[in-house]
C-alpha cells in the first residue's frame, strides 16, 4: 500500500510568530521553521500502516526552500522518499490554492492513501484535507483518531466533541488525523545519517502540472484584509485569602462564566 503524507513547515510555535505587514503573509524569516506538529502524527500513522501492510511512504511538501528541514525529519522518521514542490510562484497561496497544488502534484504519483494533519499551527484553517478530497474526487475521512485498513477499504474513528463516529470508505482516500491517534516516534540516528541517500524529487509548478494562474498571492481566493497582534497579557488579579478565598475564587469563575 502506497501512502502519501502531506508535510508542511511552519514557524516554531515556541518563538514569536509574525505576519509581514507588506502583504499580510507569514514572516518566515522572523522565526525558525519546524515541521507542523500534527504532521508528525500523520507520518507516524503512515509508517505504522506501512509496517503492517507493506508499501511505501512518500512525503509531499509544497513550500519554500527551507522546508527541506522538515522533509529530512520526515525521512529520518522512516519515510522512503519525498516530493518537494518548490516554486516562487506559490508564495502567498491560500488554503484552497494549496489544496489545488497538492491535488495536481498527486496526479503525478501513485497512491492508495493520502494522510495529513487535521490543521497546521500557523494558519489553522483546517480545510486543506477537505478541499483536497474535493479536488481529487476522493472520499474524505477527517479528524481520525484511529485508522484501520482492510483490503480495499479503510475505516476510521472520527473524533467529535461527544465521542467518535465510525466512518468507512474505499481506497484511495484522504485522511486527516488528530493528535490522539498515536505517539510519533523520534527520528532514528541511523536514518538521520541515511536520510541524504533517500530520493527527494524537486518539482517546479510546471513539472507538477500546476497552473501558474491558479496559485500565488495575486490569485488567492481569500484575502487577509487586516490583522493585529494579540493584546499583551494584562497583570492578573491577586486574591488575598482572608478566610473568604474560596468564595472569591468561585465569584471570579462565575463572573467569567466558567461555572
Amino acid at each position: 500500500m502506497n501512502i502519501v503524507v502531506l508535510v508542511k513547515q511552519v514557524p516554531d510555535t515556541e518563538t514569536e510568530r509574525k505576519l509581514d505587514p507588506a502583504d499580510s503573509t507569514v514572516d518566515r524569516a522572523a522565526s525558525d521553521g519546524v515541521i507542523n506538529e500534527l504532521d508528525e502524527y500523520a507520518i507516524e500513522e503512515a509508517l505504522r500502516l506501512k509496517e503492517k501492510h507493506g508499501g511505501e511512504v512518500t512525503i509531499l511538501t509544497v513550500g519554500p526552500e527551507q522546508a527541506t528541514d522538515s522533509i529530512r525529519k520526515a525521512l529520518s522518521m522512516g519515510a522512503d522518499k519525498a516530493v518537494h514542490v518548490c516554486d516562487d510562484a506559490l508564495a502567498g497561496s491560500d488554503a484552497l490554492q494549496t489544496a489545488y497544488a497538492i491535488a495536481q502534484t498527486l496526479g503525478t504519483l501513485e497512491y492508495d492513501l493520502v494522510i495529513l494533519g487535521s490543521e497546521s499551527t500557523d494558519a489553522r484553517t483546517g480545510v486543506v484535507g477537505a478541499a483536497l478530497a474535493e479536488y481529487l474526487g476522493l472520499p474524505q475521512l477527517t479528524l481520525a483518531n484511529k485508522v484501520d485498513v482492510d483490503g480495499t477499504s479503510v475505516k476510521i474513528q472520527r473524533q467529535t466533541d461527544d465521542g467518535y463516529q465510525v466512518v468507512e470508505a474505499t481506497l484511495p482516500a484522504v485522511i486527516s488525523v488528530v493528535e490522539k491517534i498515536n505517539e510519533p516516534r523520534y527520528p532514528s540516528f541511523k536514518l538521520i545519517m541515511a536520510a541524504k541517500k533517500k530520493p527527494v524529487t524537486k518539482l517546479s509548478i510546471a513539472e507538477a502540472g500546476i497552473d501558474a494562474d491558479k496559485v500565488g498571492l495575486a490569485n488567492a481566493t481569500t484575502q487577509v484584509v487586516d490583522f493585529a497582534p494579540a493584546p499583551p497579557r494584562t497583570a492578573g488579579t491577586v486574591v488575598k485569602d482572608e478566610g473568604n478565598g474560596g468564595v472569591l475564587i468561585a465569584d471570579f469563575l462565575a463572573s467569567k462564566k466558567f461555572v
Binding site: Y186, I192, M193
Partner: peptide
C-alpha cells in the same frame, strides 16, 4: 552539517 543539525534537534526535542 545537516546531520549535525538533525542530531542536535533530536537531542533538543528529547530534552
Amino acid at each position: 552539517t545537516e546531520e549535525q543539525r538533525e542530531i542536535r534537534n533530536w537531542v533538543r526535542t528529547f530534552v
